[in-house]
Simulated assay, not measured.
Amino acid sequence: MTPADLSATVLHAVRRAVDEHALRAPVPARVRVERTRPGGRGDYASAVALQLAGPAALTAREVAEILRERVAGAPGIGRVEITGPGFLNFTLDATADAAAHRALMSRVREQGLRYGHGDALAGDLLQFSHPREVRAAVTAHAVSGLTRAQGARVAVTCDEAPDPDWARLGIAADAGGPPPAPRAEIRPVPAGATAGELLDRLGPDATRWGLLRPAGHDRAPLGDDLLVQGEDNALFLVRYAHARVHALTRGAALLEFTGALGQDPDDIPGAEALALLALLADHPAVLAAAARHRAPDRLARHLEAVAHAFLAFHDAASPLPVGDEKPSAAHRSRLALTEAAGTVLAGGLSLLGISAPQHL
């Protein structure tokens, strides 16, 4: 169960309590859950009962008791406790979580680079237009890919003759003409340089990342730091994490084992693994939101988060045996999670039109 799943489960309990007239209070738009702090109980905690106590004219502990009755026994939840003035504390069902993790790994493995593609915009006919400016062209191209990945039919047109250098960024004119749809303008803050100038200095990958990573209403920083090989460069971090995944897969092959999530929930323990799993589970929703809002920067930020989470997981629990260790079920499970992260990174970079090298 991811934090988003737990939040939805508690929110459903609030709605049930209100519908059953056990609680007279407005249903919040969302319920916040957070990791239990050191010394606390369970895996997650929520202060929703304190939030609802005033409107319900009850004490927070009374509200917490009402909600506990409706959350206890829900799939994925092992135990619900009340602490302090009315905090709800949740201990997750490790067995159910392991099953969910196996299902997630299977989906990523089966769908590959298309994991997260969907039909959120199926049937939509979209036509994007943009000025003869490199950031607008790159953004329109990325938005086109994101919306197509959600099932839309899309055409992109430029207000003037395209810049020939755009071809070096992978941007080609649409074939077959635009669909019969109203035009939507893609007009981010201009880059302040031509495609040729940026390509000569940064190359295609750094140019695309530099233009797409900031939100469209923000200026795009396009300095030479986009070429620095260090963790302060988000593009390098994302591509390094992807390359590291492939290095681990090659290392496992030399040791004659492959990634496979086992039955034991302790095979991928720790907060780092759960954080990475939550981000992988969120990937389809991120792609759908980036498509709906015409915001490739959302995908770029998500890839950064996945890269950070993968590297933290890798440092906490190596997917490869260390020293005299022999490959175990735990190593196979960690490698499966590692490879799932690599798939998400590669698929996301592909949608942004950026290469995902296996060696750096």
Rank of each mutant, 00 (worst) to 15 (best):
A53F: 02
A191R: 00
R41P: 04
L212A: 07
A252R: 04
G84A: 13
F87L: 06
V238H: 05
R135P: 01
L199C: 05
A167V: 15
P265I: 08
A215H: 11
A341V: 02
R187P: 01
R213C: 03
G84W: 06
A57M: 09
V18F: 06
H242K: 13
A142V: 10
L320H: 05
P265H: 10
A341N: 04
H293V: 07
D200N: 14
A291W: 06
G84R: 09
E20I: 01
L299N: 12
A285W: 01
S318V: 05
S144P: 03
A99D: 03
A99P: 02
A140F: 05
A161N: 11
A243L: 11
A53T: 06
G145E: 12
A155E: 07
F257W: 12
A288W: 00
G76V: 15
A317Y: 05
A155N: 02
G323P: 00
T343Q: 14
A25V: 11
D124R: 14
P3S: 11
R32S: 14
D174K: 07
F128S: 04
G196T: 04
A149S: 12
L121M: 04
G259Q: 11
R213Y: 02
A100V: 10
D119S: 15
P182E: 15
D119R: 15
L126I: 14
F313C: 06
L248H: 06
S46K: 12
S328P: 03
R213L: 04
H308D: 12
V189H: 07
G73W: 08
L276K: 05
L6T: 10
A64D: 09
G112S: 12
D324C: 11
A346V: 03
F236T: 03
V18A: 10
A53K: 07
F257N: 09
D218K: 08
D159A: 15
R61D: 09
L121H: 01
V80N: 04
G323D: 07
L125V: 09
V108E: 06
A60P: 05
A241E: 01
L280Q: 03
A181L: 13
V228Q: 12
M105E: 00
P357Y: 11
E133H: 08
H130L: 08
A329D: 15
H130C: 09
I268A: 10
A234C: 00
A215C: 11
G216L: 10
A45W: 00
G145W: 12
A175D: 01
M1G: 04
G223N: 05
H21L: 08
A184G: 11
E69A: 14
A8R: 15
L276W: 02
D19C: 05
D165L: 15
S350P: 01
D97L: 13
L254P: 00
T207V: 14
L92A: 13
G118R: 10
D124V: 06
D19N: 14
A340M: 06
A122T: 13
H242P: 10
R250L: 07
V189P: 03
G54Y: 02
A99N: 06
D266H: 11
D324E: 13
V14E: 07
V80F: 09
R35G: 01
N233C: 02
V31I: 14
P164I: 15
S46Y: 08
A103F: 03
V33F: 03
P85C: 01
A122V: 05
R114C: 13
L320K: 08
G223Y: 01
A57C: 12
